[in-house]
């Protein structure tokens, strides 16, 4: 019962905040709305027996990415925007139609797959101790060791790339 109530509350919060994010005039508010959505998603993770993912999610997104966004928004000094949506009405309508059709199809796919029982997914082996830190760590350092290491290289490359791109005195004309 509690779970159901929590779920619907979180879902409502996430969707509302997401809508708020894309319609709000001020970029700073949009970023803050995203934080709310991300918090709700962390709540979902907890509900789904993935506390470790939830914790990492909060650290990475709220702690790092969103802060980075806020920095940039403030750095560029972006205030309230007058024309925040695409300028032609045609493209807006087209985008909205695409949105509706896409969402409808996605939900329909879920219905066909699960409610009509069209999708048959066998259950995996591990049943207990889902999502705790040791078991995920074990998996990361055994089966996924190589991708894990490569990911660290990717991050290094991203750091260097970001530094080079953002460095002011590297314009080609100079």
């Amino acid at each position: 019962m509690l779970e159901t109530v929590l779920f619907f509350a979180l879902a409502l919060l996430a969707v509302t905040a997401a809508i708020g994010m894309i319609v709000h005039r001020s970029p700073v508010y949009s970023v803050l709305m995203l934080i709310i959505t991300l918090f709700s998603i962390a709540g979902f993770y907890v509900l789904l027996n993935a506390p470790f993912v939830a914790a990492v999610h909060m650290i990475v997104y709220a702690g790092a990415i969103i802060v980075l966004f806020l920095f940039v928004v403030m750095l560029l000094d972006l205030r309230h925007e007058s024309d925040r949506f695409t300028l032609t009405k045609f493209s807006r309508v087209l985008a909205f139609i695409a949105f509706l059709v896409f969402l409808g199809e996605a939900i329909l796919l879920v219905k066909v797959a699960f409610i009509d029982g069209g999708l048959d997914i066998g259950l995996g082996g591990q049943v207990s101790q889902l999502g705790d830190t040791p078991s995920i760590g074990k998996l990361l350092f055994t089966a996924y060791l190589l991708p894990f290491e490569i990911a660290s290289v990717l991050l290094l490359v991203a750091i260097i790339g970001a530094v080079i791109l953002a460095k002011q005195n590297l314009k080609p004309s100079q």
Partner: peptide
């Protein structure tokens, strides 16, 4: 891209 994704979904369903 979204239209393509829609078409793919449509094919799946």
């Amino acid at each position: 891209l979204v239209v393509g994704a829609i078409a793919l979904f449509g094919y799946l369903i």
